[in-house]
Design a protein around this nucleic acid. Structure first.
Length: 115
DNA sequence: CTAGTGACTGTTT
DNA sequence: AAAACAGCCACTA
C-alpha cells in the first residue's frame, strides 16, 4: 500500500514542477549546482528558488534531491544540526561521489555536464 | 496589501 | 582568503 504525499498541503506550482523535472535528470554519480538547475529550468539567477523548492519536497519522493549541491561543491546546511546534510553525503558516497578532506566535491570530476 | 525568510550566487570590500 | 552586499522571487504570516 503505497501513497503519494502532497507537498505543503497544496498542489505543487508550475515553477516547482519545472525545477523538479530538471533535478530528475541528474544522472547517478554526478552532481548539479542550484544555479545550474535554475538555468536549465529556464530561470537564470533563481538559484535560491531551487533551494526553496527542494526544501518544500515531501519526505517521500522519487527525486534525486541529494545530487544538488552549492556552487562551491559543498552540501548546503539546512539549519537542522547537520542531520539532513549527513544523509545527503551518505547517499552521494554510496553512488561513487568522493569528497576531499575539506568536505568538498571536486566539481571538475563530478559536475553534471549534459551535451 | 507589506515584511520577513531562505537547501543560492556572483561581485565587491 | 574571508566576509559583506546585492540581486532574485515564491511562500507565509
Amino acid at each position: 500500500m503505497r501513497q503519494e504525499r502532497i507537498v505543503s498541503m497544496t498542489l505543487p506550482s508550475d515553477t516547482y514542477q519545472r525545477i523538479y523535472a530538471v533535478v530528475a535528470q541528474v544522472p547517478r554519480g554526478k552532481v548539479a549546482t542550484y544555479g545550474q538547475i535554475a538555468r536549465m529550468a529556464d530561470m537564470p539567477r533563481h538559484a535560491r528558488l531551487v533551494g526553496y523548492a527542494l526544501h518544500a519536497l515531501a519526505t517521500v519522493n522519487r527525486l534525486p534531491w541529494h545530487r544538488v549541491v552549492n556552487a562551491q561543491g559543498m552540501i548546503s546546511e539546512r539549519g537542522d544540526g547537520g542531520a539532513a546534510a549527513q544523509k545527503q553525503r551518505r547517499r552521494l558516497e554510496r553512488e561513487g561521489v568522493r569528497f576531499n578532506a575539506r568536505g568538498v566535491i571536486p566539481l571538475k570530476q563530478y559536475l553534471w555536464q549534459p551535451d
